[in-house]
Simulated assay, not measured.
Amino acid sequence: MEAKAVARQVRVSPIKVRRVLALIRGKKVGDALVALQFSPQKSAKLVGKVLQSAVANAEHNFGMDTDKLRVVAATADQGPKMKRFRPVSMGRAHPYYHRTSHVTVTVAER
């Protein structure tokens, strides 16, 4: 039995979130939360919230023991991009994108 949690349209690039997800994939939930707590990246706090939500879903919806939970899957997919423009010289503008992510964390008893 698996429980998952999803955070959609998180304002962090998927590439940056995937670096943090690599830290917790396959670990026990307690060890993963400690690793995220001391990680300096902005996305570590967001991933920690998703992980805590997945643990709460496992405990509340499926009655799993939180001490036996492991992170079995953690993915970051690309969300919608917001197109913005930066003014440059001579009255011109250059486009850039604010990228967003869909973060999914799955936990299961092992």
Results as ranks from 00 to 15, higher is better:
74 A>W: 11
80 P>Y: 08
86 R>E: 10
91 G>L: 06
89 S>C: 00
69 L>I: 04
67 D>V: 04
77 D>V: 00
76 A>C: 13
84 R>D: 01
94 H>L: 05
88 V>T: 05
74 A>P: 09
95 P>A: 11
81 K>G: 02
74 A>F: 14
86 R>F: 15
80 P>M: 10
66 T>F: 12
74 A>Q: 07
68 K>V: 05
80 P>D: 08
76 A>K: 12
75 T>E: 15
90 M>H: 15
82 M>N: 09
79 G>W: 11
85 F>G: 04
85 F>R: 02
74 A>T: 00
87 P>M: 07
83 K>H: 11
66 T>D: 04
77 D>G: 04
75 T>C: 07
68 K>Y: 05
88 V>L: 07
92 R>H: 06
78 Q>E: 15
83 K>M: 08
71 V>G: 03
87 P>I: 01
86 R>K: 14
81 K>I: 01
84 R>G: 03
91 G>I: 02
74 A>H: 08
72 V>E: 05
73 A>V: 02
90 M>T: 04
93 A>M: 12
92 R>P: 05
69 L>C: 00
78 Q>C: 03
70 R>G: 06
71 V>D: 03
72 V>H: 05
95 P>F: 11
77 D>C: 03
74 A>D: 09
72 V>W: 07
73 A>Q: 15
76 A>Y: 15
92 R>A: 13
72 V>R: 06
66 T>C: 01
70 R>V: 13
84 R>W: 02
91 G>V: 01
76 A>I: 07
71 V>S: 06
71 V>L: 07
86 R>C: 00
85 F>D: 01
74 A>R: 02
67 D>Y: 00
81 K>E: 03
73 A>H: 10
80 P>K: 12
79 G>I: 08
91 G>M: 08
75 T>Q: 12
78 Q>D: 10
78 Q>R: 14
87 P>R: 01
67 D>K: 15
86 R>G: 14
71 V>M: 05
67 D>G: 06
88 V>K: 12
77 D>Q: 08
91 G>H: 05
67 D>I: 06
87 P>H: 03
81 K>P: 02
73 A>Y: 15
79 G>N: 11
90 M>S: 00
94 H>K: 03
86 R>V: 12
75 T>F: 12
81 K>Q: 11
95 P>K: 13
78 Q>K: 15
89 S>N: 14
88 V>M: 13
86 R>Y: 10
